[in-house]
Design a binder for these strands. Structure first.
Lengths: 260, 260
DNA sequence: ACGCTTTAGTGAACACCGTTAGCAAACACC
DNA sequence: GGTGTTTGCTAACGGTGTTCACTAAAGCGT
């Protein structure tokens, strides 16, 4: 165990570190493209290696297996989504909380419908990923994704926009879990009531449901354009939070009264 | 193209037909077990054949490929789920519409959490299943699953339990799609307003969301027991439909006041 | 400049997988 | 019994993940 050639005194990465990072990025980029084109099952180490001009076992210097690779790109996708949502949130003035929320939620849906394959692996069933693989990186990135919504919700909470429901249905054990979650995700306020976390979870579940339904195309035989349903759900959801709803500006020019 | 040995004059199936049906059932049963144990990716023709004491190519006499087999068992699972929901619905007196709805919805969740692997393939992303395979059988079985909810919702509608929302956000094109859906699924009433179908879709989306979230374990790091959240969502959902909510009888003995 | 250590990548191999083609046995019916 | 259908097999092709032994190169210290 001598001094590693990777660690240098200064912060700058060594040459080897740079090229290593580059090939890892290439691996993930190709994997990502295969994921988009052929789904989760279409990502294979051999195909990636072939495309890179090397052999599959060589990839094991960079990735400990196919599952681990999938977790890696899942983490990347979460950061991407988090950036997209944060960017949308930052695009409106800080004070306009209501519009920020509206914009962030719509950004979430837009990203999802624009990246169905990614969304499926991020939010779909945890099929692959045997218990051996460590999903920590993806979880960490997912936390960053939630941060935008947490802070916005926190502001709503401090402004007392909506009444908290009764905690009758909240088991002491559940309350303990909710509290542990609030602590873990770094909620800014010191004491968030568990009822509030319950409300947040409920909202998230409703958003998740309508977006999943659209991306997974499980209502295809009912309707093709799911935007009206999404907006309707958004409206109901925000009403319960005391947030002023505003219809989308000009996403799709569809109203009941067709222009002349 | 001579007379088939399978078609007999009388209705009774021939011996050959019987044994054929039996082996097909065995194939599906084993595939189902592998699905439950190892997920969708864990279903392989070779493993099934090995377990049956035959070889993989032999299975092609019964199934046209792995995708087709997955569709077949998906259809079976839909009928199973439909039966479970219908049975729960039939277990309460016909007149008690509210309780029937409550029971049916809870039966849906119970089946889902008891059969997570099945639920994932039924309601998860359509990953496998290339466009070549014909998903008709699964779709047909899914329709039967929805029938129970359709009729219950239809009764609510005829009793005018809830006010219909404005159709402002419903595009003419969307209205046409909604109408086509209402016709296709055999809604009993002659003229269902499209706004009602919108409400039904919204309710279904909310139910789908909370159950997906639980089965896919995407809120694991927040809470372990998702029943309170489900019940809360159920309560809100039914309130919007004018249905009287009643807490579950004794599913899990958890109340805020712990017994002495 | 030399030697030594660490790393990158290869080739062969094993054990799987889906799928097709050709062929032999079992079966049902006339 | 003869005949055509149905069934299941073997062989084969191409694909996958993963391990192991091995070579070549790159980096580092002296």
């Amino acid at each position: 165990m001598t001094k590693s050639q990777f660690a240098r005194g200064d912060g700058r990465p060594s040459r080897r570190e740079r090229v290593r990072e580059a090939t890892l990025s290439e691996i993930k980029a190709i994997a990502r493209r295969h994921l988009v084109d052929h789904g989760t099952a279409g990502v294979s180490l051999r195909a990636i290696a072939r495309e890179m001009g090397m052999t599959a076992p060589g990839l094991y210097r960079y990735v400990s297996g196919i599952d681990s690779l999938l977790i890696l790109i899942t983490a990347d996708m979460f950061t991407e989504l988090a950036d997209a949502v944060a960017e949308a949130d930052a695009s409106v003035p800080d004070r306009e909380t209501d519009l920020r929320i509206l914009t962030s939620l719509r950004a979430f849906r837009s990203w999802a419908v624009a990246h169905p394959a990614e969304f499926a692996t991020m939010f779909g069933p945890r099929a692959r990923l045997d218990p051996e693989a460590d999903p920590a990186p993806a979880l960490e990135a997912g936390r960053r994704f939630g941060a935008t919504f947490y802070t916005l919700f926190d502001r709503l909470l401090s402004e007392e926009r909506f009444p908290l429901p009764d905690g009758d249905r909240i088991t002491p054990e559940l309350a303990r879990e909710l509290r542990a979650f609030a602590d873990s995700c770094g909620f800014s306020a010191p004491h968030i009531p568990v009822e509030a976390i319950m409300v947040l979870s409920s909202c998230w579940v409703r958003l998740y449901g309508v977006v999943c339904m659209e991306v997974f195309q499980h209502l295809d035989f009912v309707m093709q354009d799911m935007e009206p349903l999404f907006e309707s759900e958004l409206q109901n959801l925000l009403a319960g939070l005391g947030v002023r709803y505003r219809p989308p500006e000009s996403s799709t020019p569809v109203t009941i009264g067709t222009p002349p």
